[in-house]
């Protein structure tokens, strides 16, 4: 494939898919270790009412208001979960279940009761995103990367997910120590003066931002898969958190690149006609990586079961 073909058609979806995968995998490491991995799933349900409300208020399908609506809904959900958990003194999982089903139901209700039903807010778009359509028509080849005029025509999803990834990386690096400490031993972390509740909230909000930014471009399937599969596979490769996070990034990138390429060319190689969904294939690849790690990873044994005696 030549640059003239690759750069306009594949470069930007490939980059967006990869950046989204890494942005979700990074906070996913901590969510998996905290047994909160399904929060990615919860977020993808919870943002629906936010998106609908943003549409009702502005009246147009445009990205920034919807992102704001989605982020607002995610933060509201996190606060509701915390409130229910504390006031009701129940498990976080139960509180999460109550909040995210209610908010998803509210979103569907809003969608049906208002005149938004005619608008293109359908299930397929929500699940698979529209990765393949994020092409860069102004590009003519590799030279376009240096051409300011052409760069202006980049799909807006690309800079958005890039900024999101930078924010996620910064959060992870700056709060690495307290995140690790409070994930491992919350009580001890508190005695050091770490505000573990606030930090846990910040982690979930970071995950929500990564989810919402990825959601629009690549759909919820990738988001849910990337929160869990690369970190879970990475855990099976090493017994050190520092290495686990690096492995998870490698796995996320591998899944994104191989998934995108296989979706575009796999069916042709097999003698088929059409490409399959890139987002779906990326999620599939991450699942396969997890399966292989679960079978062959070097650190699969549960060593930590407390011994008695």
């Amino acid at each position: 494939m030549t640059g003239a073909e690759f750069v306009p058609l594949s470069l930007s979806p490939l980059l967006i898919g990869t950046l989204a995968a890494v942005a979700c995998a990074l906070p996913g490491n901590f969510l998996v270790l905290r047994r909160q991995a399904l929060i990615g799933d919860a977020i993808s349900h919870v943002v629906l009412p936010g998106i609908v409300v943003a549409f009702l208020v502005t009246g147009v399908i445009s990205t920034w208001p919807m992102m704001a609506g989605a982020a607002g809904a995610a933060v509201l959900a996190v606060m509701l979960i915390e409130a229910i958990r504390r006031l009701g003194r129940i498990e976080p999982g139960a509180a999460m279940g109550v909040v995210f089903t209610s908010m998803f139901a509210a979103g569907v209700l809003l969608l049906e009761q208002s005149d938004t039903s005619t608008v293109h807010l359908d299930v397929e778009h929500a699940l698979y995103g529209n990765l393949e359509s994020l092409i860069w028509l102004d590009a003519t080849g590799w030279a376009s990367l240096l051409d300011l005029e052409a760069l202006r025509g980049l799909p807006p999803e690309l800079p958005r997910i890039a900024v999101t990834l930078i924010a996620v990386v910064l959060f992870t690096v700056v709060f690495w120590r307290p995140l690790k400490l409070s994930t491992f031993d919350e009580g001890f972390a508190r005695t050091l003066g770490i505000r573990t509740n606030l930090l846990g909230l910040a982690l979930v909000v970071t995950a929500a931002i990564a989810a919402v930014a990825s959601f629009d471009a690549v759909g919820s399937i990738i988001v849910i898969a990337m929160f869990i599969c690369p970190p879970a596979a990475a855990r099976l490769m090493t017994n050190r958190l520092e290495h686990q996070v690096l492995w998870s990034v490698i796995f996320a990138v591998t899944a994104a690149v191989s998934g995108y390429v296989l979706a575009g060319y796999g069916p042709l190689w097999l003698g088929g006609q059409d490409a399959v969904s890139a987002a779906g294939m990326i999620a599939t690849m991450s699942g396969l990586i997890l399966a292989v790690a679960a079978r062959f990873g070097p650190c699969r044994t549960r060593a930590g079961a407390p011994q008695q005696g």
Partner: peptide, 25 residues
């Protein structure tokens, strides 16, 4: 009360005791 499957080494756990000196970065 601890998840001993957590991916970390003995020396890293002891270094956690120095958190107040080391700070964030």
């Amino acid at each position: 009360s601890i998840d001993w499957d957590f991916p970390t080494r003995v020396i890293d756990v002891v270094l956690m005791g120095l958190y107040r000196q080391l700070g964030l970065l």
